[in-house]
């Protein structure tokens, strides 16, 4: 909807005062769209892709060529400019995917989960770039499931759960919502589903979620973790769950989400 791909059921989107619609309005000239999946032409070269997407925004020929060179440098693909996209690595394609949204120097860059499925180096490069865009004055609308990214990059964060905006504000403001809560991370073995359900019924527990690569983590948002910890360990003992490690964290955006939605984010 923000990019004018879908008609809103209600409400409207404005970019620098100009309404966005599905028609080819002037607001679209201001938006750079970077879809979640790589949306490029694999049988065209890197340069041809950038040129094509630049032409859609009616850039004059000279400016287009200059911008294509600038973007190639920006996404560090100048040496691969004449190679076909199909020959690039996944990380390079991701970077080019972002570059294609930048050719026309947009006022607002919409990035839809740009780091999903990206190797650590490319992810770092993408986050660095986004930080730089913000510093250069470009507005960036960044959707992500990774709260640490939102915390690192964003001035304002909106949390959407099941299609509804349930909280909005600066990262610090949002963390204040759970300022008196702690996040407890238990790594354990045993029937963790039953254990998590039992934890949910304890007083002062406000959110429970399963996590960990092997499903061996139970995360909780609680009030006063230190006084609650003996109860959690007792409960584990009763349920024959072996606790391997306990971490107590200061509240962060992930804790905010857990608190507000009661479920884990990475789904």
């Amino acid at each position: 909807m923000v990019c004018g791909l879908l008609r809103p059921d209600a409400g409207s989107v404005h970019v620098t005062g100009r309404p966005v619609s599905t028609a080819a309005g002037p607001a679209k000239q201001l938006i750079g769209f970077v879809p979640q999946d790589v949306a490029l032409y694999p049988d065209l070269s890197v340069r041809e892709n950038l040129r094509f997407f630049g032409r859609l925004y009616r850039l004059p020929r000279r400016r287009l060529e200059r911008r294509v060179d600038e973007v190639l440098d920006l996404v560090d693909l100048a040496s691969r400019a004449d190679d076909r996209v199909e020959s690039l690595s996944g990380g390079m394609r991701r970077r080019l995917n972002i570059g294609a949204g930048l050719v026309h120097s947009p006022t607002l860059l919409v990035l839809d989960e740009p780091t999903v499925g990206v190797d650590p180096q490319s992810r770092h490069a993408i986050l660095e770039s986004v930080t730089r865009f913000g510093e250069e004055g470009m507005a960036v609308l960044y959707t992500t499931h990774y709260m640490e990214e939102a915390e690192r990059l964003c001035d304002r964060v909106g949390i959407i759960d099941r299609g509804r905006l349930i909280a909005e504000g600066g990262p610090r403001e949002l963390v204040q919502l759970v300022a008196e809560r702690d996040r407890v991370r238990l790594t354990a073995v045993g029937d963790l589903s039953a254990y998590a359900e039992a934890c949910r019924r304890l007083p002062r527990v406000e959110g429970v979620a399963r996590g960990g690569d092997r499903g061996d983590v139970v995360e909780l948002v609680v009030k006063d973790a230190r006084s609650l910890l003996p109860d959690l360990l007792d409960l584990a003992h009763q349920q024959a769950v072996g606790i391997r490690s306990v971490e107590i964290d200061e509240p962060d955006l992930e804790a905010v989400f857990l608190h507000l939605t009661g479920t884990a984010l990475r789904e």
């Binding site: 004018g4 679209k28 859609l56 009616r58």
Partner: peptide, 11 residues
Amino acid sequence: QGTLDRIAAAP
């Protein structure tokens, strides 16, 4: 491959 969406997002 999503390029039609990309074209639709352009003016």
